[in-house]
Amino acid sequence: MIRFEHVTKRYADGTTAVDDLSFEVAEGELVTLVGPSGCGKTTTMKMVNRLVEPTSGRVLVDGRDVTATDPVELRRRIGYVIQQVGLFPHRTVLENTATVPRLLGTGRAAAHARAAELLDLVGLDPRTFGDRYPDQLSGGQRQRVGVARALAADPPVLLMDEPFGAVDPVVRERLQSEFLKLQSRMRKTVLFVTHDLEEAVRLGDRMAVYGHGRIEQLDTPATVLGAPATPYVADFVGADRALRRLSVTPVEEAHLDRPPVVRLDDPLPRDGARAVVLDADGRPYGWLPGAAEAAREHGTTREHGTAPGHGTAPGQDTARRPRTVREGARPMEARVPLGGSLREAFSAMLRYDAGWIAVVDPDGDGRYLGVLTPERLHEALRRSVGGVTPR
């Protein structure tokens, strides 16, 4: 979809911003460009929509040389999101979002309907936010409007220049998550510029690590972190790159344990085994302690030779034992979707101090698939950080 063929950008003062750059971005792929300030990543992106003209070489979008296309027409067909958003302060959120469709000749009613649809898609109710002005929004909300506006004409290509860089870390992480969900549905071809390595790793199908004016390595985040191509890349991604791999290493079927399973309204199992409790729809409800755990919790003791539950002797059971799974079940709050990252799983285990993490179907119904135990998670972590030998 996007192809760079031996592209160089050299300025009049002799500065070379990009030097003999050749790479491709496939249709529906998100490639992050990451590197230090002044390395040429933003210049690269701006040559796609002719905000910067190449000195030599060719940039092609869908097989056409961009220099053979009128720049205004080209830019109307390419979504563009920048750090400072660039919303028109005198226009409402709905009018801002409808800008490009209107410029392309779409009628006002149709353009506003499309804008409302996209605002809803990025998590802004058009009935609440449509009539507001940009200065009435938070930074994160303005960024969402910027993304909606870039998508309004349904462009095949989306250029994003540090779009989440101006918001606080909590909002930034939320915006990244929302954008990943959006991209999974829309599958735009995206060039995403960032100086944040964590963001590049989290978002990119592939990531390009820039040196000065050139790409040192272009590969999947897992490969870049696990097998840096050059000493420069190894230094850039850092000594803790093995830990960063956890963010891009998915939880897989092979990692799962499958302990006994019981249903919520079943009677307590006779074997007294520890088990996962599922609701009627096959979703994880909780877990059932084994017989030994339950006995310890109920304080079962024997004093003066009297067995628990007999008469009123000291030491008898004072709490009624559960009779059904529902009565005996404990909540199991730690859960991750299959395909979620090992980092998510490790974080959930620490957050909930959990012995089991429920792994569920990622398609939205939350159906139970198995559990991650500390042992299985440790094994997966070891394979992740040690599975690729650096070159």
Rank of each mutant, 00 (worst) to 15 (best):
E5M: 04
H6F: 04
V7T: 13
D19L: 02
L21I: 13
E27T: 11
L33A: 09
L33W: 10
G38L: 06
C39K: 10
T43S: 14
M47R: 02
N49W: 11
T55P: 13
T55N: 11
V59A: 03
V59N: 15
T67F: 13
T67R: 11
A68C: 12
A68L: 06
P71M: 06
R75D: 13
R77W: 05
I78S: 13
V81G: 03
P89N: 15
R91D: 08
V93Y: 07
V93A: 05
T97Y: 05
T99P: 05
R102A: 13
R102M: 15
L104S: 12
L104M: 14
G107L: 06
R108D: 15
A111M: 07
A111W: 08
R114A: 08
L119N: 13
T128K: 12
F129A: 01
F129P: 04
G130I: 02
R132Q: 02
R144C: 08
A152I: 05
L159I: 02
M160S: 01
A166Q: 09
D168F: 03
P169M: 00
V171L: 08
R172Q: 02
E173W: 01
R174E: 15
E178A: 07
E178C: 06
F179Y: 13
L180N: 09
S184T: 15
S184P: 11
R185M: 02
R185N: 00
L191G: 12
L191H: 10
V201M: 01
D205E: 02
R206P: 15
Y210C: 00
Y210D: 01
G211K: 03
R214W: 05
I215F: 14
P231V: 02
D235E: 14
F236D: 02
V237N: 01
A239W: 05
R241V: 02
R245G: 09
S247Q: 09
P250M: 07
V251W: 06
V251Q: 05
E252I: 04
H255C: 08
L256T: 14
D257K: 15
V262C: 14
R263I: 03
R263L: 15
D271E: 10
V276P: 09
R283W: 03
A292F: 09
A294H: 14
R296V: 14
E297W: 11
G299R: 11
G299I: 02
T300D: 15
H304W: 11
A307W: 00
G311T: 00
A313W: 11
G315D: 00
G315A: 04
T318W: 06
R320V: 15
T324D: 07
T324Q: 09
V325P: 12
R330Y: 07
E333L: 10
L342H: 04
L342C: 04
R343Q: 14
E344A: 14
F346M: 10
D353K: 08
D353A: 08
A354Q: 04
I357K: 03
A358D: 11
V359D: 00
T373C: 07
P374S: 13
E375L: 06
H378W: 08
R382S: 03
R382Q: 05
R383Y: 07
